[in-house]
Simulated assay, not measured.
Amino acid sequence: MGRPLVADIDLDALRHNYRLARDLAPSSQALAVIKADAYGHGAVACAHALNDLAPAFAVACIEEAESLRRGGIDKPIVLLEGIFSRDELPRVEELGLWLSVHSEWQVEALLAFRPRAPIPTWIKVDSGMHRLGFAPEHLPSVWHRLQDAPDRVSGLHLMSHFATADLLDDDYFQHQLARINELATSLDAPTCLANSPATLAWPRAHGAWNRPGVMLYGSNPLEGGNDASRKLKPVMTLRSEIIAIRDIEAGEPVGYGGRWKAPRRSRIGVVAAGYGDGYDRHAIDGTPVLVEGQRTCLVGKVSMDMLTVDLTDLPQAGIGSRVVLWGQDRDGEILSIDEVASYCDTISYTLLTGILPRVPRHYHGGVQADEA
């Protein structure tokens, strides 16, 4: 059987979450974001699971798109960061990719290229994130230059990214939305604005396309959540087993540096999982863990290959007892990755994308007939 640490990937849950994104915005198309290897879930497997539902996918770079094409995915793929050098354009054409542009040199490269068919292109505007995109005052000239090159460019859209859509009452979000909507109206431009939090909570930001990302994998991106986010289902369950048990006296330390000391006579379980697998070393004492479907917690620092949990109040637990580090136990108990992330002073994105290759992914579900 080998080491018991496994990342179970529930493709039915992935499909459920995609349908939720789609149904929250019935007038929009939902671009399934599967960059960073589908947030650690396996991009090719997730794309195949969504292939009959999603009209298009989105990745960060051409290498990710090439991996999907090699894996048999032939739907449109948007390069969210566009090209990194002009010599990528022939490959963009060959793979049939959709392009985003956010810098003047990309526009110049695209206008100098001679594709056999025009390339669908989305223009990024910096509405306030101050990361990528054209300043709003410069955007109209870029739009018109590309619009005037129908032999090179097609399907122009306006794209932007929100800095604070996860906050349910935020003036800066309203400021960004107003800026982009003013531009879109003046240009009569279709838009792609809504990321996961805006898809879940801000219908006014829904455009021709939305970009659900982390919500597809069951993580709640909203501060506090709402009725829609509470319908999300976890896609990844990181599970392992107890491989050893120690009985220690009150005052005895556990783990490197003796950070945690037993407040009473305690029973400690050793779990096959550590930071060498991607479990966050910054997890503090008290980080929740499920053992045989019951909540307990991490005690002591996470090691490279192991971590330790308190079994004192779980007398039924023993060698081989099942452990869920996040996700859903087989009895239905859920330990949210968002809750675990909060104990690590991070976000779910870093935990999901941080699971390393030595952790096997086991896939199940993913029917290919849309039930909706």
Rank of each mutant, 00 (worst) to 15 (best):
R246T: 14
E223M: 11
P118R: 05
L232G: 03
W122M: 03
H130V: 01
L156I: 10
Q106M: 10
D188A: 09
A369G: 15
M129G: 03
G207N: 04
R204P: 12
V78S: 06
A109Q: 05
F57V: 01
R131Q: 04
D74E: 15
M129W: 08
Q106D: 00
D331Q: 04
H16I: 00
H16E: 02
S219V: 12
V44D: 08
L89G: 14
Y217T: 09
K75V: 06
H161L: 12
V107I: 13
D247Q: 14
L177S: 11
L95P: 06
L79P: 01
P118G: 08
R22A: 15
A283L: 05
D247A: 09
I243F: 04
G225T: 05
G96W: 06
P357C: 12
V33E: 06
H157S: 14
D169Q: 11
G278K: 02
D87Y: 07
L95N: 01
A49K: 05
T350P: 12
K301I: 12
A60W: 09
S303C: 07
P221Y: 09
L14E: 03
L11K: 00
L311G: 01
R179A: 10
D148P: 09
D345R: 15
D74I: 11
L99G: 13
D285S: 07
E339I: 14
M236T: 12
T312A: 03
V125E: 04
M215I: 14
Y343N: 08
G42I: 08
Q368V: 03
D23C: 08
D305V: 13
A43S: 06
R204W: 11
D338Q: 07
R295S: 14
E63W: 15
I73M: 03
L187W: 02
D12H: 00
S154V: 10
A117K: 12
I180F: 07
A194P: 03
